[in-house]
Design a protein around this nucleic acid. Structure first.
Lengths: 152, 152
DNA sequence: GGCTCGGGTTGGATTTTCAAACTTAAGGCG
DNA sequence: CGCCTTAAGTTTGAAAATCCAACCCGAGCC
């Protein structure tokens, strides 16, 4: 993928540039479930094997997953999440919460949280602990040379 | 996009089926910034116009954005977020926080939060208020007929 | 010898994506 | 009037990504 993104300089765009390709986040989901092997990831995501191989290579060079050889002769590899990959869980959780509400009739699976309840997530501000609401944010663009086009 | 997804039944996959195509989330980002017009969204995302038109139609039929005519003769439309679209902000915030840390050298923009600090987000469990950690979750798959393949 | 397992690669058809040019319908300017 | 601009797309033709099925290779098993 190209490195200088078109449009507004934005870490959302930069993030999607790394993990926004088809199957990438589902591969991360499977690895986060502890499924480290190519075959299992392929079956559980439904991704074509060639695409999955390409994505895992891309995720590896993006620093999201690490590929570990667990056997010589024949060479066999498994995948695990780096710290960057592990922190993608927050994105997956937000997507899951949204998907449960807006993309499916009834949640196909539920996360039991250690607090004893089923998980329902919110995104909060670390400083004040409050859930983030749309009208409470003011964007400051720090990139010189980016002239805002259009309102807001 | 096809409606019966391959692989593990999962609301992350279902969510990505609706908003995971290229440019979709960036279009939502722009609309969430108050940029309602096609031209502005096209410039600020960098998306090709034909793709953007197709995405906005898809997002509309997914119930994420609404298209409103603001002029007859010539017909002109603008876009706004539905409640579903608005709630995608949680996903965008999680992606932004991740991207700021892992996808760019230095954040190209910052959100000032109404609490007085710059925004830094965390994903918490609504029940206990604690930040969600990977090892605290137990998946329960509710879909009958889905036999777990591979560990976890 | 022939089966399976694991982690891919290869080939060829199908879809998507892309950038640039074009369309349509006003409105403004001189 | 003629010409430029704004707005929201559509069209075109070529390039790139995706998909699926089949193949490969080296073990280990029966």
């Amino acid at each position: 993928m190209r490195d200088d993104l078109p449009g507004r300089p934005c870490s959302v765009a930069a993030a999607l540039n790394l993990v926004g390709e088809k199957w990438a986040l589902l591969a991360v989901r499977e690895i986060s479930f502890g499924n480290k092997r190519f075959d299992v990831i392929a079956r559980n995501t439904g991704a074509p094997r060639d695409r999955l191989a390409a994505r895992l290579r891309a995720l590896e060079s993006a620093g999201v997953v690490a590929r570990r050889q667990y056997s010589d002769h024949p060479p066999r590899y498994e995948y695990e999440l780096t710290q960057a990959g592990d922190e993608l869980r927050a994105v997956l959780l937000a997507l899951r919460t949204w998907g449960d509400k807006w993309a499916v009739d009834t949640p196909p699976s539920v996360f039991g949280h250690s607090c004893g309840h089923d998980l329902d997530t919110a995104v909060i501000c670390r400083h004040c602990g409050e859930e983030v609401r749309s009208d409470e944010l003011k964007v400051r663009v720090l990139t010189p040379g980016w002239t805002r086009r259009g309102p807001a």
